[in-house]
Design a protein around this nucleic acid. Structure first.
Length: 950
RNA sequence: GCCCAGGUGGCGGAAUCGGCAGACGCGGAGGUCUCAAACACCUCUGACCGCAAGGUCGUGCGGGUUCGAGUCCCGCCCUGGGCACCA
């Protein structure tokens, strides 16, 4: 096709001042330059504020990826901008800016792919993002933007790490305290040292070890998620349910490795309880509760020869129903209880045909190890297990119970061991059936099954009921209900010294080190004895050294036995340092792990308050002003935080944890970082594949006869994410070029409620352009660009509509319902089009002001052409006059037997009788010959006439 | 399996202290302007019946409450998301 044959619009046919994409582009560039030059959106670093109050408004900051933005990315940014502009016009001091989350794996991987240094690609990506975002006309304070990769920023990330490192959790006080106070407490004898000796008896190394063991940031050899494909270990939160990395989808292996951990579990209860005080979506709260996974139960010790097996159970009431025990296969206790040969009394089916218990255990462990994480978690997999040859003693009955290993018991939860009650636990029931273990009911089922004989039961009985078969020498539960039995047995266990009530969590401590290059270095060095030392704050920042080769040592993604090797170990000049940490210059080795991507985002909201502060990470006065609690019970925090739901348990849990540590240490006055959270939906798109399964450009696909065609070829349609590889990506730049940023903003806001995902439809964008065009045409001459408004009063109908629109738009904006607010503005403007003639100034001005949050450039331009010289950014948002809302007549729909039959119009002050009479008169044809049983008049609403039967 | 959302025209969506279902926009049909068009303008546009006036049906399905139900209650179905051998 010859493109030069395309018709070009003749210039003289289109009025020169018609609001087109081209004109919009010119207006937008001009106003953006003016806002920048005048510092319109710069917020002073002072804490005085007018009567409108303050509002700290935030978006989840972007990760500047190499592929740039598509139209879905700025959805939330536009929404917060509209809301912020509205609040500003309501006299509120609004803090709104945007930074960049620029450390992390993807930036590093992108750098490796393109062969350039991560700093270079990161900076280029940030510039690209800035350019794309600035075209949208967002009213950010440009002086408060940060990037987590800035030395001036990560200096404070390291500083906060030091605060956490130099703290311990005082369980008695329920808060973190400086580690020096722990040393003081040990020294004063207020706290017992780990081995009971007095503090002064301990060597310096022993004292240091005792403190290190309690720090909130600590090193420990723990089972970690080793991902050879990424060359690093990962946090639990970064591993998917089928045991692969969230990034890159590589296999993840469990390995014991020494790593940096954050003691987030100390905060489990507070992280859980404080959710109640947050204005967050219920789904996010539910996900966090689920992830923390608090469960109340009891720890019970079962003697087994030389050792004791401690189990965690939520059903201590079923203690008399224990018929066997299970330990996780990898549990260290297993090797200590396995006897040399099979004792008498066991069932051959428990032994898997092995000659000795040791062989049985080894074979079972080998089977488990050979299984992939996916297989292990597969649904409906039959329960397996093998006897260890050992017996333990039920502390309530004195009975011996066989001890098994089975992979349905997880080493990482509770104590890694369970008491099996097959009658009342489905998993135990399944293994009991598989190995023909006894099943002893101790809770009388109320559902018709046999209460004492489980041989015909189809499944475990997990409901409530009366305890039976539960009387021992020192305690009896018979006759009690489950809840009561739990209480009684727990009291008995405590007095008998065999167990106690406890709480466990699914939440694990946060694995905080990564074997990657592109992250914050730890402010930690090791002495020649291998002991860790924190650097003093005066030595911060510890800057990331330049490296020629920043790649992780590549390992086979499937080789779980490979070793992580941080790239920073290669920076030998950087690693080996001589420092004076208070006892003269000595040689040290730097920590070569880096922090995970989440570190910077754990506290960036605080840095927005003053990114230039070189004395502190945040000024306490600014923090109190912008984030402090507003009333008793208020946790404080950012007033509105908008972002996607994908960070429900990662970023949002980690940042709450860091914030609480800072709160405990007195560094911030708010105990939560984000008071209100709003999850925006996603913009999705259709993608099309041809018969080979290859994606074709979505823009060029047409619909014909209910099918989709790419040229002459039929294509298949799918729906989902927008992405370059799917060939369905639309960039904000091309939308700005074709329609202007204001049209794009308006379109994205009118697509639907902010929290709902919706499909992108480029064809529909023109509707928003038409709206702006019509507003433009109603107020200006399309040929001359002169305002056509008149300084005359509006007619009563127009005035009433204006004021009802103001009321509605304010209400919708307050609740972030931008789509319906826009619909109201369109209705008002359509009314002005319909009545024709010049628009009165007293209608034009409020219309422009109400439009301003959505389409700020067009509104500014109209405002100036209406004769104003200053920006409208701080003009008061229109306020409705209640007196102008009153109509003189009211229209009632009239129903007869529930069906709409007529409408009547009566004076607005008509009494109920008059309305009733008018309504009946309007439906005589329907009522004729029938009895009117009842007439319901709902004032201002409706009239309902009820006829008799027949 | 458990938890949380949500099912309304051809499409995105309005309307929930129960009160005219389908605001607003896209798409579609017809028309205006134009040599022709367009990101212009006007009219119509839930389905069915009817020349029309008008009527009947209609908010996932089945019941119920009510003068009146998209909205409340009971029982299902489906879709999306989260969690999932957590003792």
């Amino acid at each position: 096709m010859a493109t030069d044959a395309l018709p070009t619009p003749a210039d003289e046919d289109v009025p020169s001042q018609r609001y087109s994409g081209l004109l919009a582009g010119e207006i937008e560039a001009r106003w953006q330059a003016r806002w920048a030059a005048e510092g319109t959106f710069v917020v002073p670093r002072t804490v005085d504020v007018g009567p409108g109050g303050k509002f700290f408004l935030m978006d989840m900051f972007p990760y500047p990826s190499g592929s740039g933005l598509h139209v879905g990315h700025p959805l939330g940014y536009i929404a917060t901008d509209v809301y912020g502009r509205f609040l500003r016009m309501c006299g509120v001091r609004v803090l709104h800016t945007l930074g960049y989350d620029a450390f992390g794996l993807p930036a590093e991987q992108y750098a490796i792919q393109t062969g350039t240094h991560p700093r270079a690609t990161t900076e280029a990506n940030i510039e690209r993002y800035r350019a794309q975002i600035s075209r949208l006309g967002l009213a950010h304070d440009p002086t408060r933007s940060v990037a987590t990769t800035d030395e001036a920023f990560y200096r404070w990330t390291q500083w906060i790490f030091l605060q956490i490192y130099n703290s311990w959790y005082d369980e008695a006080a329920g808060r973190a305290r400086p580690i020096a106070e722990l040393a003081a407490a040990y020294e004063a004898g207020e706290l017992a040292t780990p081995d009971g000796r007095s503090w002064v008896e301990l060597s310096a190394d022993e004292q240091a070890a005792a403190l290190d063991a309690r720090r909130l940031a600590y090193r420990a050899e723990v089972p970690v998620n080793w991902c050879p494909g990424l060359g690093t270990v990962l946090a639990n939160e970064e591993v998917t349910v089928d045991g692969r990395s969230e990034r890159g989808n590589f296999p993840v292996f469990r390995r014991e490795l020494t790593q940096w951990m954050m003691r987030i579990t100390a905060y489990a209860d507070r992280l859980l309880d404080d959710l109640d005080d947050l204005d967050w979506p219920a789904s996010v709260k539910a996900m966090q509760r689920n992830w923390i996974g608090r469960s109340e139960g009891a720890l019970i010790r079962f003697p087994a020869g030389e050792v004791e097996i401690e189990v965690f159970t939520t059903r201590p009431d079923t203690l008399f129903g224990v018929t066997y025990m299970v330990i996780a296969p990898e549990h260290e206790l297993v090797d200590r209880i396995v006897p040399g040969s099979w004792p008498a009394g066991g069932d051959p089916r428990w032994c898997a045909g092995a000659a000795t218990p040791r062989e049985a255990v080894a074979a079972y462990r080998a089977d488990v190890a050979a299984m992939s994480e996916r297989d292990r978690q597969a649904e409906a997999r039959p329960k397996t297990g093998v006897w260890t040859g050992a017996y333990a003693t039920n502390p309530a009955t004195g009975e011996p119970v066989p001890v098994f290993i089975a992979d349905y018991v997880l080493a990482g939860y509770g104590t890694g061991s369970i008491m099996a009650v097959p009658a009342h636990d489905q998993r135990d029931f399944e293994l009991a059936r598989a190995l023909d273990l006894p099943i002893r009911p101790v809770v009388a089922a109320g559902d018709g099954r046999d209460r004492l004989d489980a041989s015909a039961w189809p499944d475990a009985y997990v409901g409530d009921g009366e305890l039976v078969n539960s009387a021992g020498a020192s305690v009896s539960l018979d006759g009690l209900r489950v809840a009561e039995a739990k209480r009684v047995v727990t009291e008995w266990m405590a007095s008998a010294g065999v167990g106690r009530a406890t709480v466990t969590y699914k939440l694990r401590d946060w694995l905080f080190s990564r074997q990657r290059y592109w992250g914050e270095p730890f402010p930690i060095v090791y002495d020649e004895g291998g002991r860790a030392h924190a650097l003093p704050a005066s030595m911060l920042p510890v800057t990331l050294p330049d490296l020629d080769d920043y790649r992780p040592r590549s390992a086979d993604p499937d080789d779980g036995a490979s070793e992580p090797e941080p790239p920073l170990t290669r920076a030998s000049d950087w690693v080996e340092v001589t420092l004076d940490l208070g006892d003269g210059p000595r040689r040290y080795r730097r920590e070569t792990n880096t922090m995970p991507q989440w570190a910077g985002s754990c506290w960036y909201e605080l840095r927005y308050l003053d990114p230039c502060d070189e004395q502190r990470f945040v000024d306490p006065e600014l923090e109190r002003f912008w984030m402090g609690p507003q009333r008793p019970g208020d946790p404080g925090g950012v007033d509105l935080y908008v972002g996607g739901v994908e960070h429900a348990v990662l970023h949002l849990l980690y940042s709450r944890f860091w914030h609480k540590v800072l709160f405990d240490l007195g560094e911030v006055s708010s105990r939560e970082p984000f008071r209100r959270l709003f999850n925006q939906g996603y913009i999705q798109a259709y993608a099309y594949t041809d018969r080979r399964g290859v994606h074709v450009p979505a823009e060029e696909v047409v619909e014909r006869d209910g099918a989709w065609w790419y040229g002459d070829e039929p294509v298949r349609r799918s729906y989902g994410k927008m992405g370059k590889s799917l060939k369905n990506s639309v960039s904000p730049d091309e939308m700005c070029d074709r329609y202007g940023a204001d049209t794009l903003r308006l379109y994205e806001m009118s697509m639907g409620p902010l929290d709902v995902s919706r499909p992108w439809d480029t064809r529909a964008v023109v509707g928003s352009l038409r709206f702006l065009q019509r507003v433009w045409r109603n107020l200006l001459d399309e040929t001359t660009g002169e305002a056509t408004v008149v300084d005359a009063p509006a007619d009563a109908g127009t005035e009433r509509l204006l004021h009802s629109t103001i009321t509605a738009v304010r209400g919708e904006l307050e609740h972030l319902r931008f789509n319906t607010a826009i619909a109201k503005l369109i209705e008002l403007n359509n009314h002005l089009t319909t009545i024709g003639g010049p628009v009165p100034l007293c209608v034009a001005e409020p219309l422009v002001l109400m439009l301003a949050p959505f389409a700020p450039h067009a509104a500014e331009e109209l405002w100036s052409r209406l004769g104003h010289t200053a920006t409208l950014a701080h003009e008061p948002f229109p306020v409705a006059d209640p007196a102008k809302l009153v109509a003189e007549s009211a229209t009632y729909p009239v129903q007869v037997d529930g069906k709409l039959r007529a409408t009547v119009t009566v004076p607005v002050d008509a009494g109920e009788e008059a309305v009733r009479a008018a309504a009946l008169a309007a439906v005589t044809g329907w009522v004729e010959g029938r009895d009117v049983v009842k007439v319901v008049v709902v004032p201002g609403r409706i009239v309902s006439v009820v006829l008799g039967k027949g």
